[in-house]
Design a protein around this nucleic acid. Sequence first.
DNA 1: TAGATTGTTAATCGATTAACAATC
DNA 2: TAGATTGTTAATCGATTAACAATC
Lengths: 217, 217
Amino acid sequence: MAKRDNISMLVVRRLPRYYRFLTELQAEGVMRISSKELADKMHLTASQVRQDFNCFGGFGQQGYGYSVEQLKNEIESILGLKEQKKAILVGAGNLGRAVASHMAFEPKGISLIGIFDKNEKLIGTRLRNVIISDTNQIELFCKKYMPNLAILCVPKEAAQQLSRRLYTMGIRYYWNFSHYDLTNDYTDVVVENVHMSDSLLTLCYRISDDMEAKSRR
Amino acid sequence: MAKRDNISMLVVRRLPRYYRFLTELQAEGVMRISSKELADKMHLTASQVRQDFNCFGGFGQQGYGYSVEQLKNEIESILGLKEQKKAILVGAGNLGRAVASHMAFEPKGISLIGIFDKNEKLIGTRLRNVIISDTNQIELFCKKYMPNLAILCVPKEAAQQLSRRLYTMGIRYYWNFSHYDLTNDYTDVVVENVHMSDSLLTLCYRISDDMEAKSRR
DNA sequence: TAGATTGTTAATCGATTAACAATC
DNA sequence: TAGATTGTTAATCGATTAACAATC
């Protein structure tokens, strides 16, 4: 891995997808692949595939293509999956519970070390072998265990105040499911938003657009 | 609403966000807003805001700006939220249950009319007042109720066979949480993917990149 | 060596930004 | 009318695609 210097977000967002396809290819026993083959599989162009990889250095070999295993390892290292990260999750409602129990954290180098909620009924119960604690214990917990990543599954109204507390405790990386915009308050923070309802609205648009197009014919 | 003709996906994906901000502004009692003000709030440029809206026709007024209420209504209609859609959800595991109970379907014109799972323990229980049925009842159900949208919360392995069945039953719109690529099999299908793990991997990259950048300083 | 496929430069395409005349 | 802000055209910027020399 070399180069890397101001990589476009569009490239970055393709990396996980490359990683998925390569993992699968490896599982299928495929040893090597050309940019053309990979591009066809992923509905991209060969040029784009090569350009993408060359943002980080040349992983291929002329006349041969790419070694699936090597390429997968390179991307794994680019994504930083081997670096250990400690995460806490706040908000153990429907969404929080789904995220906690559904996500594969370990293969990404993430250990979920704490879950918090203010609902007394949930406090003390377990999720993925982690005991749910009272949200007001967050400061104590952070002081002790120093998590670096927070997963926000709280309602918008709670997110602002909560993020202020987490920021104070030194947390700078957020996986944010709430509709609160953290970048309004802090500039030195990395936030990845998951807005499921935006995605559903996009689908609504596409349905409406598609149906209209069909009715025109 | 007028114009519209080959709108870029980048514009489409901004629409739900506009809609969110406008809904909020309206709730706050704001009556009018300029492209500049809206752009600042949303971290966009005024030019972009105006260009985006003008894909669908001019909703503003020179010297005044945009009426929050009118603009919100226009976008609502562009997104097709008033059109009634019938949805079924397949896979009532952690993720499916979270989606079913967490999502606000009604304001998007979607009614969730059926939920399916193959796990006998879940069959017969209720989610959001919908009884979970056996997955093998899907064909019967679709014949009777003609849903047009399917939400896929099943594992990758189940998704291919399942999508084939749903396609046969005439379903062409999919909100897909599985890692199976539906567009491989069908071209006349509209699929909106939600890949939460890709989003988390993107965050991993950004953490790794950010930490590296900091250590360089 | 000949064939294949990369890495990389150049050309094209599309999206964002800037500018400004139109007009409320 | 003067000031503000839109709608829209032109300029810029960035991303994708095409082409091809380098090389395995």
